[in-house]
Simulated assay, not measured.
Amino acid sequence: MTQRVELATVMDRLAVDGLITDYAVAVDDGDWAAYRDLFAPDGRADYRSAGGIEGDAVQVAGWLARSMELFPMRQHLIVNRRVRFGSLEQDTGDTAHVRADYINPMRFAGHDGGSTAPDFICGGRYAFALVRTYDGWRLREVVVQEKWRRAPEGLTTDQRPSPV
């Protein structure tokens, strides 16, 4: 591998990592326009394993906006990112797949607006499929694989929210 190819791979890896971080920040900040902009035109997301929906970026952003009203404070931590580059139409490096674990602590909206509201936490794995576009790397698919959740004592399964 030449130095030029190695440098291009490092640059792509940094750009992909930045896109995954931008995803977490958009959800945590409730910036649904930024969330939608992270996706390719045909991009989709699947939150069904966490009790959510599957759909295009516009549909899912709307669902997230409503769902996240329950949690005014949230913090996605996306770790153990494994990036694999693929090819599209014989051009090496035009696609990427990322598997990453997440832990997502959030705080329920409380009557006092803050610190006494109970916490909710969940964790699992994301599967991201990315494609290189003229505008840079974009998400083609996001699949959430929730593995566990911890809700406040006293909530029944039916009362537990569907966050991600």
Rank of each mutant, 00 (worst) to 15 (best):
T92P: 10
Q3C: 10
T2R: 12
V58S: 15
T157P: 07
E54N: 09
L70D: 12
G110W: 06
V83N: 06
G124N: 00
F120A: 01
L88S: 12
R4S: 14
L19T: 04
F85N: 01
T2L: 14
Y126W: 02
P163F: 04
K147G: 14
L38C: 04
G113T: 02
L38H: 02
T116W: 00
H97P: 03
W63C: 10
W137E: 08
L139A: 07
R36C: 10
E69F: 09
R125E: 15
H76K: 12
I103A: 13
S87T: 12
D112C: 00
A15W: 11
T9N: 14
P163V: 01
R99D: 13
M11I: 15
V142S: 11
V131N: 03
Y23W: 12
P105F: 04
D94G: 08
H97A: 11
M1P: 13
E89T: 00
D31V: 04
R48C: 15
L88F: 11
A117S: 02
F128W: 00
A40L: 09
T9E: 13
V16H: 07
A109V: 02
T133G: 05
V25Q: 09
G93M: 04
L19Q: 10
P163Y: 04
D119H: 00
T2F: 12
Q145L: 11
F85L: 10
R84S: 06
H76Q: 13
D158P: 02
L14P: 11
G18T: 13
G114N: 02
L139H: 03
E6R: 09
F120P: 02
Y47E: 07
R81E: 11
A57E: 02
R99Q: 10
C122D: 10
V10M: 14
L139R: 04
F108V: 06
R140D: 15
A8L: 11
G93L: 04
G110E: 06
L7W: 10
L130T: 04
A151I: 01
V10F: 14
S49Y: 05
F128P: 02
L38A: 00
G55I: 05
R48Y: 04
V16Q: 10
Y126P: 00
R132G: 05
V25W: 14
A151L: 00
R82G: 08
W32P: 02
D46Q: 08
D135M: 03
V79M: 11
V60N: 07
F120R: 00
A24D: 05
T157V: 08
R132N: 01
L14W: 12
G86Y: 12
G136N: 07
D119N: 04
Y134N: 15
T2N: 14
L139K: 03
G123D: 00
L130K: 00
I20W: 06
I53C: 11
F108L: 07
F108I: 06
T156P: 03
